[in-house]
Design a protein around this nucleic acid. Structure first.
Lengths: 348, 348
DNA sequence: TTGATATATCGAAGCGCTTCTATAAATTTC
DNA sequence: GAAATTTATAGAAGCGCTTCGATATATCAA
């Protein structure tokens, strides 16, 4: 009679006994290293299955000095942001983490980060093997991570020449502007803010490049930037006044992101302008709100999930490579760029 | 290349030596249990500070048989949903977890969940002390969690009488309908879908209650539900046709959620109806998109972050209570409800 | 005063795993 | 065909912590 008592945890020892071998052999089978004969391997695998053995994460960590955790650091305001941009990056990372057998620990940090006081627990406790940092974060924090010696990968941001995953903002912008030109537009304006953010300045650059190539020398008079504001709906609305209030009115506007574009559209609609007939608008990011707006927003899609996935993969690679790090043949370029894709909807 | 002096890990042993006491005493100080004299405590605390000692999470887990991790289970589609609803609940939980010294491990599960194959790792490995389940999930999974014996709390869902945090949908709806009445509306319709979801049926109930109380007997002819569709923008748009195509046109519509409301507005605007003059619309959830829409959506706010926070707190309480669980005086009701609040914007 | 009880500290036994070492058999080398 | 090397397995140390006695002293109730 089998008693359905509280099933005691099955340990590696039980497996060893059951498979008539040693703990070390079982460990080797589980981790796929060392020398194990095929017969033994099969016996051990069988025992594992029969007993339903699952290794204990903490025990492994303790013995091997690896945590199998990846930290994901994100500014609080990037979560509370109206758009689930970074959330999706996180999701992508989490997805890939499953494949790679990592847990992802999320740590949000305050915007007014202060060293010591706000250091994420996972850093203090060194409870991760590697870290993904998403978006722009306080440089104090960046240095702290750097100092910790824990390998890390940046997403949608760059710092020195540390590994990073960024958007191909320049080419995405060029594609957007070209599309506007194809539609017959000549007076194409650029609308932006917070120009210090590398992503945004790259988008401006793409705009300028495309305009220049098409023979438009004067982009300056068509560039509307409020550099101290963050790129929100409100900012777009406010800049709308400047754009549509001037004497030389553009027929199309390429916006540095979707929130700005939505804000501009709101202002334009209020001024009884028809979109896209009177004013064509293209955004950047492909946020959810753009699908629901009237008209639906034409924009440049950023593959957010994919960026997270890539970041995790790159990090995992880095972690495995560590013994090779001293090699002279070390592949030094770990800065990846993911393409952005024009999504044609109604607003242009 | 500066060579970082790899600082050796400071262990409890080092602290003990430095404070001239034993490991067990240090442990007791750190965990605040057992008997320790004030003098010793101060010495130990001093040593900890001086050496910068941080306990090792895996070692603690292994020795104490607690992980200090909380699992957060969520359906994949609830993340990819256009709205960061559950994301915000997660955020709230994560926030509170920091206070309570837990890590939150997120596990997303597929919609077509199958036992065994898809069991989240954190369940298989029993790598958590407790679990938060957000939203409606497959009942297989629910049973699996139940069987595991790991304490859990549901958020925005209920199962048997397990601990849960839910929205006060009924009162929120009543408030919304009352507001519409105050504005002079008599013909108020209800728009909904997926009526089997408890949240949605509660909202319908609130609507009916409010209508009845105001002397409107016939709510049926004013209730528009597509029960097989999920409550999305598209569904709202489609139902708009039915609502506005009938002979008895309502002057106001209370929608089961914001996505439906936004869809309805889209349709109404297409039909050249002015909102709120020709048709007042109220939603439910207070999603981001509602702030950006034209007109901005009047809705019922759900405190998502707070729900997550509450869930974590309740779970933590449960975990601490476990020794008391056998007590006859055990407080049996762990099913909490959080209020919903009417947000007045432009659409009504 | 005297057991009983509360307070205080320490040493040591594990928690479940990885990995180093020892040992031996099988295989390769020249 | 003896030495060197590769393959195969087991045993045991120890990762950093918690916690269970053991022991000792201080405090209390009668």
């Amino acid at each position: 009679m089998n008693q359905p008592t509280k099933k005691k945890k099955v340990t590696i020892k039980d497996v060893a006994k059951h498979a008539k071998s040693s703990m070390s052999t079982v460990s080797m089978v589980v981790n796929g290293k060392g020398y194990v004969s095929d017969i033994k391997r099969k016996e051990v695998l069988g025992a594992i299955r029969q007993l339903g053995y699952v290794p204990s994460a903490p025990a492994r960590s303790l013995a091997s000095n690896r945590t199998n955790n990846i930290g994901f650091i994100l500014r609080e305001s990037h979560f509370t942001l109206s758009e689930p941009f970074y959330t999706r990056i996180f999701l992508g990372a989490e997805f890939e983490a499953k494949n790679q057998n990592y847990y992802v620990l999320l740590a949000t940090v305050a915007d007014d980060y202060e060293r010591e006081a706000d250091t994420p627990r996972l850093l203090k406790e060194r409870n991760v093997d590697g870290i993904i940092i998403a978006g722009k974060v306080n440089s104090e924090l960046l240095m702290e991570v750097e100092d910790s010696g824990i390998p890390f990968v940046l997403v949608d941001y760059q710092y020195k020449s540390y590994p990073s995953i960024t958007i191909d903002n320049r080419n995405g912008s060029i594609e957007a502007v070209r599309y506007l030109m194809e539609k017959g537009h000549k007076d194409i304006a650029f609308l932006g803010s917070d120009i210090r953010h590398p992503s945004i300045s790259d988008r401006l650059e793409g705009y300028q490049l495309a305009m220049l190539k098409a023979g438009h020398q004067d982009t300056k008079s068509m560039t509307f930037i409020d550099e101290d504001k963050s790129p929100t709906l409100q900012t777009g609305f406010d800049l709308g006044m400047r754009i549509l209030g001037g004497k030389r009115k553009p027929t199309a506007v390429f916006c540095a992101n979707d929130a700005l574009a939505l804000g501009l559209i709101k202002y334009a609609k209020q001024k009884k302008l028809k979109i896209p007939e009177d004013l064509a608008v293209v955004g950047f990011d492909d946020v959810e709100g753009g699908k629901f707006s009237t008209p639906q927003l034409t924009t440049v899609r950023v593959f957010k999930e994919q960026m997270g996935e890539l970041a995790l993969r790159l990090l995992a690679e880095l972690l495995d490579d560590i013994p090779t790090l001293n090699s002279k043949f070390e592949r030094s370029n770990h800065m990846l760029t993911v393409p952005a894709e024009l999504i044609i909807r109604e607003s242009a």
